[in-house]
Write a protein that binds this DNA or RNA. Structure first.
Lengths: 352, 352
DNA sequence: CAGGTTTGCTAAATCGGATTAGCAATGCGA
DNA sequence: TCGCATTGCTAATCCGATTTAGCAAACCTG
């Protein structure tokens, strides 16, 4: 195929030194080990001329570090969000000269086990275990074989693994503040969860935390949530149904939808009842899915910072990898990534 | 961290044989090299008890094959489509016991070069060079260092690399047939490209090929394309503008939108003019973006088979890797993946 | 000028397997 | 019983780097 890779031995031969010396120079330890300036230059020149690049497989075998990390997630395909998360991780990794293995478990424990094994067989330096939507997970067995970080997931049992999560509670607060700031005091309804803390689909971390934030801010302002509708899967159809059902008995002035897909359905339902957004009803939402900017009027929403989550996971993983084993046994700290507000066109003062 | 990996030497020691013998047995060459049944069983048993797994880094160094392939694309984040493509590649790779490196070039040649280098440094067995939307690309220098496949991209210069592409021409035919079958004969307009072959944004392979298919089938049925509007970026806003502009002078009975995002904009424009889909105007489109199923009425569209494209790329790459070097120098063959029709609710007979 | 340092470099071992060459023990034929 | 083939296994080498231990030459020092 190609004319065999250039090896360290080739460089050494051209420079007229031993492989040892060449290695020393190229790894920057030449000074420390008293290699003469002259020899150093010869090696550097030879390496440059031959376009030498160390074989990372070989280095991996010798030193045990492969400059490679594994990104294991439950799904890669669901929506663009996953892509952004991977993109963030990818760029952070690139800046550190590290490559990313990608793997998908589809939520199956057996696949997950095999995947982690395959990655360890390749001596990854660390693992990012990611979930595409925030949820609690059972930690897989082999996860402790290397440094690891949980991304968008909280462990069922307490564990020493650090985790990276969007700041959902603060996002809930933001959503509530948007309505408050616009002057809304009544007729605020929730679509997807609520109004009470128990009205939440099991396992949905996002629902719980967003609800906490919403209730906290509205409560502090002396505003009561007028009502809410729960559902498990936050899809447009559900948003349509739920909002329709709501409209049969209530006249909302503002809707907080628990994600943008629900909001899309809510828009359709409001349209069916001849109500205008935001003139008749204001709508705030979460996620900042691409459709949020395509809807008419454009949807005001609190964004899931997928890109930043991906980056943060790599950052935290590196910190973890650099850590001494001694200070292990600590509780895994939780890193919260802020969720920025995207103000668009779907919120107006009541009765505007 | 963890109690050191089990090595072949460990297995050999437990089984009371030499590492050579253990290696022979475990690589299945025991029979061939006359290892006794008894010894074979001992080795197998020891390996099983110790849960031995070969260190792929080591194997990679010795044999040069790492059971790893690189997936280099221009963007991973754009829409879910990319995710599906990666998912397809991932699953096909998993079935073959191969891991995937993911890399993103963002269209920058320099990044691409460095990425390919980083992958070759890790001795990948092959490379998939992917584009997220079909287009012509300039082949990077280092691409020939290992077997490679072009995914969703056609090389500017003729090259020996095989490529995998969606069958856009046939997709164009499908779109036209859908309207023909519904009884449409006139008032068919194109949004995004056309009506003539020259009315196409530069560099858009999909536009050209879809247009060929559309014109071929309509032409064969003696139906003339009533008109069309071109634009470069196929986004909802453009669809809205273009369709609005069209409506000022024309009364279309059917729209072929060059992708679903354009169709979303077209829906909005038709709504502005008080026209119903599909009662007044039928709409067909391409891509099968997630929003296609969320729109009302649901959009009939010819799907980009991203998942299958990803799978196909891995299949073709493996064929390439297994190929003898001798029959090189042939022209890279082009593999076309069919684009399936998703019939939904946006097409009806004219005047229905 | 013998004995000890310092300087500047290299031989050899190592990582964990695959592979080639070869060795000891047994079987077989003459 | 000798010579040769076969059977069944192992020693040694290699892949491409890093790293430890150490060696020769030059340099001091008293």
């Amino acid at each position: 195929m190609s004319p065999r890779r250039v090896t360290l031995a080739d460089v050494a031969k051209i420079a007229g030194v031993s492989p040892t010396t060449a290695s020393l120079v190229l790894s920057g330890r030449g000074r420390e080990l008293r290699i003469s300036h002259d020899v150093e230059q010869r090696v550097l020149k030879a390496a440059d001329e031959l376009q030498y690049r160390p074989n990372i497989v070989s280095v991996g075998l010798r030193t045990g570090t492969t400059r490679t990390i594994g990104f294991v997630s439950d799904t890669v395909a669901t929506s663009r969000l996953a892509g952004d998360m991977i993109k963030g991780a990818l760029e952070a990794a690139r800046e550190r000269g590290v490559m990313l293995f990608i793997g998908e478990t589809e939520g199956e424990a057996e696949l997950e086990r095999r995947l982690l094994q395959a990655m360890h067989d390749r001596q990854v330096d660390g693992i990012i275990l990611a979930s595409m939507f925030t949820r609690t997970i059972k930690l897989p067995k082999g996860i402790t074989a290397a440094p690891a970080v949980l991304l968008n997931a909280v462990p069922k049992q307490p564990s020493p693994l650090p985790s990276v999560l969007p700041d959902e509670v603060e996002a809930g607060r933001s959503a509530a503040r948007i309505l408050l700031d616009a002057g809304h005091r009544e007729g605020i309804y929730l679509i997807g969860a609520g109004p009470a803390m128990r009205d939440v689909a099991a396992g949905s971390v996002a629902a719980v935390e967003r609800l906490i934030g919403i209730r906290e801010v509205l409560g502090a302002a002396g505003v009561k949530v007028a009502g809410g509708r729960v559902c498990r899967d936050w899809e447009p159809e559900r948003g349509l149904e739920l909002t329709r059902a709501l409209m049969r008995t209530e006249r909302p002035r503002a809707l907080i939808c628990f994600n943008d897909r629900l909001a899309l359905g809510a828009y359709q339902a409001l349209d069916d009842f001849g109500l205008k957004v935001p003139g008749d009803v204001s709508v705030v939402s979460f996620d900042d899915h691409p459709i949020a900017a395509w809807m008419r009027p454009k949807l005001t929403t609190v964004a899931l910072p997928h890109y930043e989550l991906g980056r943060a996971a790599v950052d935290v993983l590196f910190a973890e990898m650099g850590r001494q084993d001694e200070d292990a046994h600590r509780e895994g700290e939780v890193h919260r990534v802020p969720m920025p507000v995207r103000v668009r066109e779907s919120v107006a003062p009541p009765g505007a």
